[in-house]
């Protein structure tokens, strides 16, 4: 990889650079790849009939999920304190399962605490089966297709507009909890809004659609699918753009900046001050006056 990179990650507004041809080629490859990605699971699904998938999902569900969510996904209230052990899954849809299990949040280590992102327990095939089973319990949001959250099919100008609009929607609806850079934030009583940088766009889309844990839902009647797509495009554009100004310091805003001012700035200056005023080496010899 070249260290110095001209016009990295940006879509030129005015110019056609020599690399435009290369970009078209790349775009073609990307499109082919994404088309393949979009169609290949469908082919796999054909191989295994839907019923068989649901049955497989039910088997996994009974072993791994029913303790909290009930044998038929109806949810269980704890016998001890009457609190919900696991909510009903009827009508949450495949998208919720794909998000919760696919990001490792489910199965939960301990009921009651906020589900954390961790390496998924189930393989993608198993997640698919689980999702199919839960979707069969009641109508709910389906797993989005890549075309739902990708702006690859738009023209360059449309893409730019989508990113700008997405930024405004993001700042209006999302930054309050997830912070201006998607670094996450604190919620009442130990809850937190997780970091959403570096998260697969599919999961962001599913999270908006289903409102995992304490998050509000942004159903299609609330934020249209295009608006969700634009938010994801904006987040993607933030990840693609160079960090113009240097290290982001965690993207936490003024608190981390203050910390760096004290530790790095004052620390370094004081270290220099100590050196300036320190006594230099002394010699045991005395000077021979010429």
């Amino acid at each position: 990889m070249r260290l110095l990179n001209r016009s990295a990650g940006r879509l030129s507004r005015y110019r056609r650079r020599p690399i435009a041809g290369l970009a078209v080629l790349m775009f073609g490859l990307l499109l082919t790849g994404s088309l393949y990605a979009a169609f290949s699971p469908a082919q796999a699904g054909q191989a295994e009939s839907d019923e068989a998938l649901v049955a497989k999902g039910r088997d996994i569900f009974i072993v791994g999920c029913s303790t909290c969510h009930g044998l038929n996904g109806e949810g269980i209230n704890s016998s001890r304190d009457g609190k919900i052990l696991g909510p009903s899954l009827i009508g949450v849809g495949a998208a919720a399962v794909d998000f919760q299990v696919g990001t490792g949040r489910m199965p939960l280590a301990q009921p009651g605490s906020q589900a954390q992102r961790k390496p998924p327990v189930y393989t993608p095939d198993e997640v698919e089966a689980l999702a199919a089973y839960v979707a069969s319990l009641g109508v709910g949001p389906a797993i989005p297709d890549e075309s739902d959250y990708s702006i690859a099919g738009l023209s360059e100008q449309e893409r730019e507009e989508a990113i700008v609009r997405g930024g405004q929607i993001f700042l209006t609806n999302c930054t309050a909890c997830h912070n201006f850079e998607g670094s996450g934030g604190a919620m009442p009583r130990g809850g937190y809004a997780p970091k959403i940088r570096g998260v697969d766009p599919k999961y962001i889309y599913e999270a908006m659609l289903t409102g995992p844990q304490a998050m509000d839902t942004f159903s299609n009647g609330n934020l249209s699918p295009e608006e969700k797509r634009d938010v994801i495009a904006y987040l993607q554009s933030l990840e693609d753009q160079p960090s113009y100004s240097g290290f982001g310091l965690g993207g936490m805003g003024p608190v981390s900046e203050g910390l760096f001012a004290w530790l790095f700035g004052i620390g370094l200056c004081v270290a220099f001050a100590v050196w300036i005023a320190a006594h230099t080496t002394r010699s045991s010899k005395s000077k021979v006056e010429a």
Partner: peptide
């Protein structure tokens, strides 16, 4: 190092600034 419409980058950082 260019700024404006075509920021040059060095190792992912804005080259001009760095």
């Amino acid at each position: 190092f260019q700024v404006g419409d075509n920021w040059d980058t060095i190792a992912g950082f804005g080259a001009s600034n760095v």
